[in-house]
Structure formats: C-alpha cells, structure tokens
C-alpha cells in the first residue's frame, strides 16, 4: 500500500447492528452492477445482441423484399430472432456466467456475505430481460425502418412481455449447466445445446418448412413453445394455443428449477 495506513482513530467501532439492510436497495444495486458488468463484456454483447440483430438484418430484412401479406419473413423473423436473442442471453448469463463465478470462488465469497441468494439470481434474471429488451428495440428499429414492419403498440408490448417472462425457464436451464459442467466447457456446452435446439424449435425457420422428423421433435423443445407464443402475439400462427405453450414452459421451468437446485446442492460450492 503506497499510502500510509489509516489510523483506527477515524474508524468507527465494529458494527453489531442487526437492523436489516434495505432489501430493495440490494436488489437494485445487484441488478445495476450485473447489467453493467455484462454490458462491458464485448463477447457477451456480440453473442446476445450482435448475432440475433445481424441475422435479422441479413435474413429478415433481405428476405422481406420477396414476401407479401400481413405476415412475411420480416415479421416472422422479428419475433423468432428476438426469442433466440433472449434465450441466448439467459443461457449465457446463467450457464457460462454462473459457471465461471462458481469456479473462480466469486460465488463463494458472495455467499459469505449477508446478501440474499434471491438477489444474486434475481439480478441475473432481470439483466437477461434487459438484454432481451435491447435486442427487441434494436431489431424493432431495423424492422420498422428497413423492412417497413408495422405492429400496433399492443403487439409490441405483448412481444416484449413474452420475451421478458419467457426467459425464466432458460435462466434455470443455464443454472443446471453452471453447476454440472466445468467452467471452461460451459460456453461450448451452451452453444452446443442452444443452437440445435433453437433450430429445432423453429426459431430460425418455420417448423412447417422443416423435415418431418424435426417437426415431431419440435413440440418437445422449450424454445419451440416460447417461439410459438411470440409468433402467436404477432398473428403468425393460424390457430394459436397460448395456454398450451404457457403450460409447457411452466412445466419446463419447474423441471429445470428442480434439477438446478439438485445440481447446486451437489456442487463443490457446498462442500
């Protein structure tokens, strides 16, 4: 330390204060710094914002020239790539992010403080929602200005709501990865799971355009149900069954949550 050590005369007596720290303030700060932490990570931005928006401009905007009718490629891909973006953001923030913080001892240090665990997890969920929102805004801007997509405000809001709430099962899925896979392998595993499942779930092409066997698999893919909700919101599904998809996502959230909890209890952070 280059500066002179502090005289303890200026240091208050140790605190035995058992009042509660403001829980609301913990949540707000935890979320703010989680968001800032990720915002300053170039590779996270490229993965969660860059790729979906780039795909949209390449495929959605370019293909839009050839489509007609109220729901063309520009509309369809806006909804499905937004879902791809938020799912990727959630899986990376949890799968890779938590795996690294666990392995490096950072999670352990946080657990030794009075921080509520819910603040740690909640902050990461809200941060994932924020990145999903930014993806939607950027993509929406491209859609409106370059592909002349027009939705009523209510549709934009529904789409946003689907993204924001719908990322939760994927946050929990990410946690399973975080507590079971070695941290160096986590980003690779996330890609290995996310890319094929997003494809199989119809986030890149409509399920109807896919080979028969993929059409059979699709309803078992969590991404499919969130995608169908988003596509239903913009009127791209002939017979929307929102309750069916919500039920499937809730079931996945429960299963993933239980598996994540089990993985956490068994992981090295508790030994």
């Amino acid at each position: 330390m280059s500066t002179a050590a502090l005289s303890t005369a200026t240091l208050p007596a140790p605190s035995a204060d058992q009042a509660h720290a403001s829980i609301a303030r913990i949540y707000v700060l935890e979320t703010k710094y989680e968001f800032l932490k990720l915002l300053r990570l170039p590779h996270y931005l490229v993965g969660t914002l860059g790729f979906p928006v780039m795909f949209y401009v390449l495929f959605g905007v370019t293909l839009a020239q050839k489509s007609d009718g109220p729901i063309g490629a520009a509309e369809y891909l806006l909804a499905s790539y937004c879902i791809f973006g938020v799912v990727t953001a959630a899986l990376f923030a949890f799968g890779a992010g938590v795996a690294v913080e666990r392995a490096q001892g950072w999670m352990t240090l946080k657990r030794a403080t009075p921080m509520p665990v819910s603040a740690y997890l909640g902050a990461k969920i809200v941060a994932s929602m924020c990145f999903g929102t930014i993806t939607l805004l950027l993509m929406g801007l491209c859609a409106v200005t370059m592909a002349h997509v027009r939705f009523p405000v209510s549709v934009w809001l529904t789409l946003w709501g689907v993204m924001a709430i719908g990322c939760i099962p994927f946050c929990l899925a990410g946690l399973i990865i975080a507590f079971t896979v070695p941290p160096t392998g986590a980003p690779g595993i996330v890609n290995l799971i996310n890319l094929p499942l997003s494809f199989a779930g119809g986030l890149w092409f409509p399920v109807a355009m896919m080979p028969r066997f993929l059409q059979v698999i699709a309803p078992w893919v969590p991404q499919y149900h969130l995608g169908q909700l988003a596509l239903g919101a913009i009127g791209a599904v002939d017979e929307p069954k929102p309750l069916h998809h919500v039920a499937a996502l809730v079931a996945y959230a429960v299963i993933f949550g239980a598996l994540a909890w089990r993985a956490y209890r068994r992981s090295d952070v508790n030994q």
Binding site: P14, V100, T113
Partner: peptide, 18 residues
C-alpha cells in the same frame, strides 16, 4: 452471524469489468 463477519477468501478472479 454474517452481518458481523468480514471474509477475505482466495478468489481466482473477481468480475473484471466493474
């Protein structure tokens, strides 16, 4: 207990962008 305790552990890496 944790409110009255300060802990310094061997942490390999702290989030670096804060």
């Amino acid at each position: 207990s944790r409110r009255r305790l300060g802990v310094m552990l061997q942490v390999a890496r702290v989030p670096e962008t804060l």
